[in-house]
């Protein structure tokens, strides 16, 4: 069985603190994988390592059979890994459409002397980027906010814009860091449908960090549970729900899991 993402013996140390210890993880193409765990378990660290923002102290990450553990973030994005951020990182002062147009950067990297001298063909490319960004905003339900400043959007829409922007980079693997945070139940429901549609229509593989157990249990094919930088369980939502170690780790949050 081939894996789109294969993490082996991944260890990240920040001085004395071991944020991740010897993590092994394999993600099948076209699946939705949940990454859960209590606060400080190392979930975002996993994302940061996969997307290249943190270099691992040890271990390998292979994406589509290619080793990416020590590549620069922009390189990893160009290979087809896109992500969103836990603390939203939009280009706040730019408009919604500009945010998405920047996402298309990789597919339309014109030679610099073209825009510099305003040669013909350049406006054509610009229009094409604009149209594709517009199309993406239409699909993500942001078309009404096209010219708004990104930072002026409500929280839930900012999260959605981050996903739209990540999709513009043309990913095969999408990393969603707490995308449902701050959304109301209806928005969450929409988001879940949207994520499933991404998987079905675009054949994306999705890795998501989420605190809302309802969301996780509903849409994930498999779940990996981290605690203090170690993997304590992995399996289908049903298996995770009944796993004794997971319940212990989430002590106090047990009820959430059961409901």
């Amino acid at each position: 069985m081939s894996h789109i993402l294969k993490i082996q013996d991944l260890t990240v140390r920040f001085h004395a603190l071991e944020a991740l210890s010897s993590l092994d993880m394999e993600v099948e193409p076209g699946s939705i994988r949940g990454l859960i765990g209590p606060n400080g378990a190392g979930k975002t660290t996993v994302f940061n390592v996969i997307s290249g923002f943190i270099r691992p102290s040890k271990g390998t990450i292979s994406f589509n059979g290619k080793e990416i553990a020590n590549l620069k973030p922009y390189k990893i994005t160009s290979l087809g890994v896109a992500r969103t951020f836990q603390n939203i990182k939009l280009f706040g002062d730019l408009s919604v459409i500009e945010n998405v147009m920047i996402g298309f950067h990789l597919s339309y990297n014109t030679l610099f002397w073209k825009p510099l001298l305003g040669l013909i063909g350049f406006t054509k490319i610009e229009n094409e980027v604009y149209e594709r960004a517009r199309w993406l905003l239409d699909r993500t339900g942001l078309l009404n906010f096209i010219d708004e400043k990104a930072s002026s959007l409500p929280y839930g829409l900012q999260r959605r814009l981050e996903i739209a922007r990540a999709l513009a980079t043309g990913p095969k693997l999408l990393l969603l860091d707490e995308s449902a945070a701050g959304m109301n139940p209806t928005e969450k429901e929409d988001l879940m449908k949207f994520i499933e549609k991404l998987r079905d229509k675009l054949a994306l593989t999705i890795l998501l960090i989420e605190h809302d157990m309802h969301v996780v249990m509903e849409i994930c094919d498999r779940i990996t549970v981290l605690d203090y930088g170690e993997k304590i369980a992995e399996g289908s939502p049903k298996e995770i729900r009944n796993n004794q170690r997971v319940i212990e780790a989430y002590l106090g949050e047990t009820r959430v899991i059961e409901s």
Binding site: P73, K89, L90, F91, I102, H105, T110, I125, A166, T169
Partner: peptide, 20 residues
């Protein structure tokens, strides 16, 4: 697109890198 990339760096360098 070059100008947009530059503005992206100004707005958020981390996010700009994540955009490739």
């Amino acid at each position: 697109s070059y100008g947009r990339a530059m503005k992206a760096i100004r707005e958020d360098e981390t996010a700009a890198q994540a955009m490739g």
